[in-house]
Amino acid sequence: MTRQEQIALAVAVLALALVPVVADDFWLVQIFGQSFALGLVALSLNFLSGYGGFVSMAQTTLAGCAGYMVALTSVNAVGKGVPLHPVASIGLALGVSALAGAFVGWISVRLHGVYMLMLTLALAMGFFFFAQQNVELFNAFDGIRGVVVPNVAGVSLRSPKIFFYMSLVCSAAALFAVMITGRSPFGLVLKALRDHPRKAAALGFDVAAHRIAAFAGSGLLAGCGGIFYTWFNQRISASTVGLGMINSVLIMAIIGGLRSPIGAFTGAFAYVLINTFASGLVGAERVNTLVGSAFVAVVLASPDGIAGAAKYVRSRVRQSSLFERFVAQPASGSARSAVNE
């Protein structure tokens, strides 16, 4: 992280910290709180794809694991699970999402590019159908309603200002952690794996262990987002981990720019704004057409998303395409041989 980036991030966080002075509760929770929660999930995808070149569709599912866990360990309206102390509940939720992340990383450890995308998509949709089918644990289609957000010193963590600051601090910390990781030895090995897995392996790095650790870390990030999102909605159901949400997280990450960690939050913010306000323009039912078309346009025109476009304008130097950089390099032929090894 360069000094310039550090200053930019600090200024942005300080500016956001002043938002409650002017914004009402609707903006604090519905717009900013929701953006931070979803941004954390998108950040977990940006982390994986930006550093490791793994485009995982399972991040929503990892967030959902934490969300279900926190719902099941809180007081809720459907009487499922066992209420625990909030600290234990959050700790368990993050543990489960990190474990689930490691599991996804382990299953897909030999896959690259679009093969990994297909497998993680299949896993994610399998979890959705499972959650929708299973009554015992997930309460099937209805999900866990009326999740009670814990109180600290008599104040609910769901009260607008508290929720806003909590999600802001957590997002800033996660963003900082991801940027620091990019410069750390671990992050450098991930980038080496992205650019040339075989060379990295030949240098003696344990490819599998690094990949699994990266997925576990992304599970932690997604888990934070999942907990906030469950608190935000005060419920979680199968549709929270369904195809619509899986696609939405991908859209946020791509629109914001897969390679820039901040892009996750700009993408989430843009998505929440469109979702909230475009319904007034095109009707609530047709928002997906708008969002989907915008997504297709971004993929075709600017693979680096908003962040890429901004960078382009700033430096006026043409960036090499994101996808050619980290996905097309094992051209389809060698990706296949990597699968067959």
């Binding site: 485009v55 590019g113 679009v114 995308l117 297909m118 696609n247 991908l250 859209i251 791509i254 989907g292 078309s293 997504f295 297709v296 993929v299 075709l300 693979p303 996808f323 050619e324 996905v327 097309a328 389809s332 990706a335």
Partner: peptide, 11 residues
């Protein structure tokens, strides 16, 4: 560019 194909068709 199979990744872009995948993303476009998802969109």
């Amino acid at each position: 560019q199979d990744m872009r194909q995948a993303l476009v068709t998802i969109g």
